[in-house]
């Protein structure tokens, strides 16, 4: 693993964001808008005397954490799309850059995105809604780390599908993560799902994170079991997904797709 090459690929993306208003909007505009809309919804719910105590805490906390997952996934999938749009994959993969270094660079990129978006949302929520996500306490840290891992897993899955099927699959960079939203139980407890879906949801690491978040907020309990499950599942899925990415990359090289992707 060559740190210089990882830094080189990372610098390519940082140059891009430096001067692209559209890409900066992607990072700041949508999260800001999400927060405004969900903030008003929660205020409305509270004014209606909703029985759910602390609706703001639930919804805004969930929204900020969901965005961590979403941005972590996009950090990986959009980085690949950028290379595809710029027809730069040949330059990258004809260089000594390895597949592992490529993945690590996109993972670092996703952490930078999460820090930018998450930081902005936390500050905005604090200023406008007096909502401090750190009220969740220290468990916030493993929550965020696990959501980043889940974002990477979905991001690597999305990237391998785009690499395999080309531009026709690029919409997945934005849509794939929402396939997991209903069973991640972001805004509602897992118990509201039909029993079949509940079984599925237990196998989805973000569902454990959001359940854990509610456990902290409602009962002030440390969600040890949920964190253990989330971490274990993430570790297994991440290893599996990286192996799957290597396999897809090999197939794409055999079929000559790497030099055609984006055409």
């Amino acid at each position: 693993m060559n740190v210089g090459r990882i830094g080189g690929l990372l610098s390519r993306h940082l140059y891009l964001y430096q001067r692209s208003v559209a890409r900066l909007l992607e990072i700041f505009y949508w999260p800001f808008l999400d927060l405004v809309v969900w903030g008003f919804i929660t205020i409305y719910l509270e004014k209606q005397g909703n029985s759910l105590h602390g609706a703001v805490t639930f919804f805004l906390g969930a929204l900020i954490l969901w965005d961590v997952l979403f941005r972590a996934q996009q950090g990986i999938a959009l980085s690949f799309l950028e290379e595809m749009w710029a027809r730069n994959l040949m330059n990258l993969f004809a260089s000594p850059l390895t597949v592992g270094e490529y993945l690590v660079a996109t993972m670092v990129m996703s952490i930078l995105k999460v820090m930018a978006v998450g930081g902005l949302m936390m500050v905005f929520a604090l200023l406008v809604y007096s909502y401090d996500i750190f009220a969740i306490g220290l468990t916030l840290i493993p929550f965020i780390l696990n959501l980043i891992l889940s974002g990477w897993i979905i991001g690597v899955l999305t990237t391998s599908i785009i690499m395999r099927f080309g531009q026709q699959a690029e919409v997945l960079a934005w849509g794939m993560v929402f396939l997991f939203q209903p069973i991640s139980c972001v805004f509602y407890p897992l118990e509201v799902l039909p029993s079949v879906l509940q079984e599925v949801a237990w196998m989805v690491p973000p569902a454990h994170i959001f359940e854990g978040m509610r456990q902290v907020l409602l009962n002030d309990e440390f969600p040890g079991l949920h964190l253990m499950w989330a971490t274990g599942l993430n570790a297994v899925y991440l290893v599996g997904m990286v192996l799957w990415f290597y396999h897809t990359f090999k197939i794409c090289k055999e079929r000559g797709m790497l030099v055609r992707v984006g055409e």
């Binding site: 080189g8 610098s11 891009l16 710029a86 990258l92 260089s95």
Partner: peptide
């Protein structure tokens, strides 16, 4: 979206 020089810098680091 990168300048000529920036592109060369990235390649130089990849090699």
């Amino acid at each position: 979206s990168l300048t000529v020089e920036e592109n060369l810098k990235v390649i130089a680091r990849l090699y």
